[in-house]
Amino acid sequence: MFIQQIINGLTLGSVYSLIALGYTMVYGILEFINFAHGEIYMIGAYLGIIFLTFFTAVGLTTSNIYLSLFLTMILTIAFCCAYGYLIERVGYRPLRYAPRLSPLISAIGISIFLQNFVMFTQGATDKVIRVEALDGFVSVWGINLSYLQVAILTVSFVVMIGLNLFVNKTKIGTAMRATAQDKIMASLVGIDINMIISLVFVVGAGLASVAGVMVAGYYGLVNYHIGYIAGLKAFTAAVLGGIGSIQGAMIGGLILGIVETLGSAYVSSDYKDVYAFLILIVVLLIKPTGLLGQRIEDKI
């Protein structure tokens, strides 16, 4: 049973991690919190349902479920990346050199806009999706692992390892890290800052949309305000791991998921949200920068 709980926690936590990465990457480069990030996750969930319903309607899901799911995922990521790019282009780039509060307000505005946009176009009621073929589970040593749990764990870990390699081993990744360290210096050595910042938003949105699609399939229930709670939890995960640190966000999300799950399993489920914030406070008291965060020296 303990192992079952750990797996429940890891599933929940890996979703938090995926969303948290978007928060942390944007913070790393622009030092501001993109509060509209949770909405990208919500839009991803909706798009996932829309595309999957479409592929089911044309008969692809019944003939080749893997292709159908794969296409759903790819299309959703593509659309959400476009959303991510647009948000940055419209909401944040014009405010790049404005006082720091301005983009924050802009972010809240975008968040409200996107929520209401989705409510208006998709309706206020819950959307339900059911993929019968994915309903089964595998039993190993008395532990029930549903197919979707396996899928969520595998996909998130693959995506996170991929992101790590991308940031640390590729040229663009190096440019991203350089921009995070010092924007002016990076631009002097020929890095296109605007391109890199857009890219960070696009990658963050892509990761959130992966989480959105998987959650839509896993719980089978989506509404226009799921982005709020998920965004809040993911933000907590990012701060817990040390905001600005990519590995930090991954670890923060997993810890958050496991703490919530174990807390509600062994102490009391009434206070599920309390455990998450309790551990956040404790970590911040001991290490104000978060688990893996680094103190940002004041730039002269």
Partner: peptide
Amino acid sequence: GITQGEKDFKSVLTT
């Protein structure tokens, strides 16, 4: 108790 608006109840249910 659980929280309204949550989606994941597996930990409670496993217990």
